[in-house]
Design a protein around this nucleic acid. Structure first.
Lengths: 249, 249
DNA sequence: CGCAAGTTTGAGGTAAATCAACCACCGTGG
DNA sequence: CCACGGTGGTTGATTTACCTCAAACTTGCG
């Protein structure tokens, strides 16, 4: 593992399970109805919706959505398992979540953002494709607010994946440098940023406070950070960027 | 760190920066307007909204929201940094994200779910509190759909935090056991579940494929999993639960 | 059969955990 | 003024869990 494999070439064969018109009984009797997206909605509502919904299946290894894709639909999983993966700048694959029955995939499309992760079937998978046309236009009151909220949630979700990809993996040094970059991103106008206690750094990076202290001391001595007080620091951004690049992660 | 500290007792002192009526200029001139929740909305819309919005500040160490809280508002960060933390069953603290200016906090309230993480100010923090009353009632068309969507996104987000808390931290053994539990949660009706290749396990748990193989072999020999084929397994749930409990994480 | 892909097992090295002092700082109080 | 304890930080010695490199084995398949 951890080799710099470029992602495999995409193959876009998709097996349609039913013609779109036959969709209605599939939805009302869907095995995952309570967990899935439209579970709580009244049954008669689904009769209006079925034009926008269709079912499909994927063989194992098939990619559903690729990073950067601008989707016009979201998907819910009915059977099987998919994985969401991304590659670090160094080309290492990171599998960041699994999606089983009931999961919502491609939610980025709801707020018009591009897909962030590759989604790949692990087993034979059956899905429902839900066209964005089903969702009310953003001109309605309420919807105008929904989009920024969704976009914000999406951003938060991505930030959390970034966290788990960069701050809990790799060497202690690289995790600390990534944390410093993150803290610096939240710096005040005067350029000073919050400097956590060593045990807090440990709990963020999954390190002991001793290791956190040793790593921080080393980074501090190298001049990348300037300690202003117990709780404040100033980061030398170019030096930090160079230090991160030097570790190639 | 990593001691079994119960969370500190809550102190609910909150400093109101302005009386709610004075809110409007604060919003239109807000320094984080483009990144924050209502950035993209037209300015005159904000005039209707200002009754529902108020500003507050917290001193460092103060808790904004606690796990389980049923909120009636969401918050956006204007200045400072907060952390989201949770405790494992073994009582170890895990800091799972940082929130800086522009972040949306307490979004669980949008879909009526309880707060999942403790939110604690790291520095002096100033926030905007946005009452749920601002959001249109769920009786409107469109909104009826927004709630399940939000709830699903919220669930996905929680699943990702669970992933980063349990599958990328702790010993290799405990991570593998947690992964097996997760895979088993997506088992088919016949009780069989997907068994990833060893390098895939490695990329999920941030282990080398050799370590993944060794750990899996050991767990396999202990009888917790039964290998049906290269890609399928059956998990002995009680045995797995016992194995996880034995590691106390 | 023979190759390729995946898995297991082994031996040795290393980064981080663990255990344990020790230090710097700071308010308190004799 | 200096003992005092309490908190947070640093540093050192030792152990260990995981990584790395390497070889053998197993399974499926043309």
């Amino acid at each position: 593992m951890n080799l710099a494999d470029p992602p495999p070439p995409p193959r876009a064969r998709i097996h349609w399970l039913t013609p779109p018109a036959d969709q209605q009984p599939l939805c009302t009797e869907c095995a995952v109805r309570d967990m899935a997206l439209f579970g709580p909605l009244p049954g008669d509502w689904l009769r209006q919706a079925h034009d926008y919904v269709s079912a499909l299946t994927l063989p194992p290894g098939q990619r559903l959505l690729g990073r950067g894709h601008q989707g016009q639909a979201v998907y819910t999983v009915r059977q099987g398992v998919l994985r969401a993966e991304r590659y670090t700048e160094a080309g290492q694959r990171r599998i960041v979540r699994l999606a089983g029955p009931g999961a919502l995939l491609g939610s980025e499309a709801l707020s018009g953002l591009p897909q962030v992760d590759d989604l790949i079937a692990c087993t034979e998978v059956s899905l429902c494709r839900i066209s964005l046309g089903l969702f009310p236009p953003a001109t309605e009151r309420g919807q105008a607010m929904a989009v920024p909220v969704l976009r914000q949630l999406q951003r938060d979700m991505d930030a959390m994946v970034q966290w788990s990809v960069h701050l809990t993996r790799g060497s202690a040094r690289s995790r600390l440098l990534q944390l410093l970059a993150l803290l610096d991103r939240h710096a005040e106008a005067d350029g000073s940023a919050w400097l956590p206690r060593r045990d807090e750094i440990g709990d963020m990076l999954d390190l002991t406070l001793e290791t956190a202290s040793r790593q921080f001391s080393a980074v501090h001595k190298s001049g990348v950070v300037q300690v202003l007080s117990l709780q404040r620091m100033r980061v030398d951004r170019p030096a930090l960027a160079a230090a991160i690049a030097a570790l190639a992660d």
